[in-house]
Nucleic acid binder design. Structure first.
Lengths: 144, 144
DNA sequence: TTCTTTGCAAAATGTTTGCAGATAC
DNA sequence: GTATCTGCAAACATTTTGCAAAGAA
């Protein structure tokens, strides 16, 4: 089989993110630059603790504070995957997490699978589905 | 004796739940009976801490352990509403929670709004959508 | 210089566990 | 009688906060 070319992982460029961090009233410190680079490079989801482990000159509290600032200016988002710590990733990915209730496996599914639901919720209840902060709970094939 | 209780919107009868608790290898203790009655009567979602507050002769640890046992035998289910504590409710309700990212307001929507999505996820990814343990993240009308 | 951010330690929050005594069966 | 359940206290996991020193603008 041919390996499909990966879709662009994000619509948010690295330099734009830096710009937003600055515009949000924040300073570009070494810790923030390093964390932002790492989040960008990782592409997928990562916990605050994992980030701190990868940069043992950056305190976990600093990681949390940086992530909070990044979220405020919209360059990262976090999701709660059931139990355990929150998972952070670079903004703009067009997938949402489906977490297996049983084994915890995370499957990413294209966000547009939810377009119909989103339209309906908006229509009938005035609710705007928020794709970033949201995980689906499922049973994966292996656990079904 | 069995206290007759008005039936809330669930497909699981109170006596059946008691039976399941017993069949699951569990004993019917005073704490369990009281908690089960309260969960049944409340109908909606409630946190472990709220349950403990309503019954100050029952320790919070006992509440958690009882809830865990109730979940094992399928008479209650819990959902993570974003931040904060998990919320428990009697099994069998056919609604799912939509939590406002911004203000935390919870709107219950009929579970069948998700039937189409569930069918599609099963079809395309082999994932079985799990309605119990699952909250949608939204912006409510007031916060939009 | 001035205001923000950092590291460290401590607190806050939500949940789980160990243990000795109480209770259901 | 005996295995399970309970209360209490302590541990645990994740996240937040206070504060003095370091760093960005």
């Amino acid at each position: 089989m041919t390996t499909p070319r990966p879709a662009p992982a994000t619509t948010l460029a690295f330099d734009d993110a830096m710009e937003r961090v600055r515009e949000g009233g924040g300073r570009i410190t070494r810790a923030r630059r390093v964390l932002l680079e790492d989040l960008y490079d990782v592409g997928g989801r990562i916990t605050a603790e994992e980030l701190a482990e990868r940069h043992d000159d950056i305190d976990l509290a600093t990681v949390y504070r940086s992530l909070a600032h990044f979220e405020e200016v919209g360059v990262v988002e976090h999701v709660h995957l059931g139990h355990g710590p929150a998972a952070y990733r670079w903004s703009g990915a067009r997938t949402i997490a489906a977490v297996c209730d049983h084994c915890g496996a995370v499957t990413d599914i294209p966000a547009d699978e939810l377009d119909a639901l989103a339209a309906r919720l908006d229509d009938r209840y005035g609710l705007r589905l928020s794709l970033g902060h949201f995980a689906l709970s499922v049973h994966c094939p292996a656990c079904s």
